[in-house]
Design a binder for these strands. Structure first.
Lengths: 130, 130
DNA sequence: TTGACACATTCCCATATGGGAATGTATTGT
DNA sequence: ACAATACATTCCCATATGGGAATGTGTCAA
């Protein structure tokens, strides 16, 4: 296959940083495309394309006024995302203690022993990228 | 450019549906890869690759026990996502009334007038896809 | 040491991407 | 009717993807 389409669902749509910026920007007020372009410092076609994606998944609404198109964030569409993350909330509350344990084990292991391979995290893997 | 890497941040990592399934599955208990493969019905290399992505962005931790690798969701890493969506929570509360307005405007416009172009949503665009 | 087991990595490939540049389209003012 | 304005779409392209298949690697048991 390949990666899923950006328009396949809300998760894919908000994966793009500029689209999140746009959503933030349009949350308070509706805005014409030109203002988004100026405020976020992006190229106009780029903004139009991002808006198209957001529109397709229902993350924004549009309204035409003369030659201008006013976009606005449809916050309601973000709820599924919020709810998915929420199911993990109770876990990170319970895990705070385990984070400490891990930190302690790590500082012990790195004193003079072998490299610590338990509980690897991003930084431990970065070496394989350079 | 192209799309951002799946490992570039948490947002991109969770865009993939199976990775979300894996995170759900590993939230309660740590599990060896084999069990993930059996439970979710995915190919083993596929699972390993997904786990690698999740590991790089810190969404899971690993622990080795003999030949088996026990993975577990690191819920803490989901918080940024949760917090981003949370900033919109107050908006969808305030917007519930506007949704009704829109629905009413739409039913009025489609009675006998021109096609309604205000507040387009996903379904209005689907025609352009077929 | 060897074979089996549990995973990880690599190779191949069709596909969607986002940016830049160019062009198309709808609406307004004159 | 025409130029200007405000967006939208298209084309080109380097790039990362996820799946399938094959292969590599580390660990244990005998």
């Amino acid at each position: 296959m390949a990666r899923a389409t950006t328009t396949s669902d809300v998760f894919n749509a908000v994966a793009e940083p500029r689209r999140r910026e746009i959503l933030n920007y349009l949350a308070l007020q509706e805005r014409p495309v030109g203002e988004i372009v100026d405020s976020l410092g992006l190229a106009q076609p780029s903004v139009s394309k991002h808006l198209r994606v957001l529109l397709e998944v229902g993350l924004v609404d549009v309204r035409r006024d003369g030659r201008r198109m006013f976009y606005r964030t449809n916050a309601e569409a973000i709820r599924p995302l919020h709810e998915w993350t929420e199911t993990f909330e109770r876990f990170w509350r319970h895990q705070l203690s385990r984070v400490k344990e891990r930190a302690e084990r790590k500082s012990n292991a790195s004193k003079e022993g072998e490299p610590d391979f338990s509980s690897r995290r991003k930084h431990d893997l970065d070496s394989s990228k350079n």
